[in-house]
Amino acid sequence: MTVSHTRKIPILLLGLFLAAVLLGCGNRNSGGPEASGVYAAPPDVGALQKYMARYVSLLNEGNAPELAKHLGDPNSKQDAALRIEKYGRQQWRDASFECESKGISADIYDIRITATNGTTAAPIRIDERAHWFGHEKKWHLAGLIETKADPQKPTSGIDPPSTVG
């Protein structure tokens, strides 16, 4: 069976197109373009400064409901209460923020907050972990509350066997 030259060109072009699509669809861990940050939105350090300044302001105020909104995750209410208990109402002054990527993930950063306690003049140094959501262009702090699986809830979708007593 012979294939004419006019049919070889579209088949060749289709093959090249499919190869280009398949090579461009790698995930972050594949070493493809996204792993090098070509497609990922770069972290916005200005947004981080604003986010962290608001965080410190809400801690200083002891405003748990607003802090919960600011944190914005499912455990925010409990997490905000824990943060207020741990760090709140200390009147942090001269707060500064350092951001460093430890290579854990392309979008996870260690944040160091340094400040001075406005009441005692004691130095404050707090380490946090933040996640940059490039698609939303937002920062979020990792929660202080550990999430644990509920042993009463099945993970496989099958109810656990009941015991006869």
Rank of each mutant, 00 (worst) to 15 (best):
E98Q: 14
C99Q: 14
I126M: 10
L23H: 08
A53V: 11
H70S: 00
I111N: 08
I124V: 15
A64I: 05
I126Y: 09
E66G: 10
K69E: 10
P65G: 13
G24C: 10
N27G: 04
D73T: 02
Y51I: 03
N60D: 13
A95K: 01
Y87D: 05
H131Q: 11
Q91M: 09
T120K: 04
V38T: 08
Y87M: 09
D127R: 15
E61W: 05
S36W: 14
L58H: 09
N63P: 12
Y39N: 08
D127A: 15
G26L: 02
S96K: 15
T114N: 11
E136M: 13
I108M: 11
K77H: 06
V56Q: 01
K50T: 11
F97D: 03
S36Q: 12
A40Y: 12
I126N: 11
E61P: 06
G46H: 10
P43N: 06
K50V: 05
L23F: 12
D79R: 00
Y109I: 03
L67I: 09
F97C: 00
A121E: 12
E146S: 13
G26W: 14
E61T: 03
D94K: 14
S101D: 12
Y87C: 04
A115F: 02
T116W: 05
R89D: 00
K138Q: 15
S101A: 12
P43T: 02
A130C: 10
Q91D: 13
S30H: 01
P43A: 04
D110K: 15
E98M: 10
D107G: 03
P65A: 09
K138M: 09
R93S: 03
S76Q: 05
H70N: 05
N60R: 01
M52V: 03
P123K: 09
P42N: 06
P42G: 07
D73Q: 07
N27C: 03
V56T: 01
Q49H: 14
G62D: 02
T114W: 08
Q78C: 01
G88M: 08
S30A: 03
I104A: 08
L67R: 02
C99E: 12
K77L: 07
P42S: 07
L23Q: 06
N60V: 00
F97S: 09
S101P: 13
G134R: 00
A149H: 08
E61F: 13
I124G: 06
A47L: 02
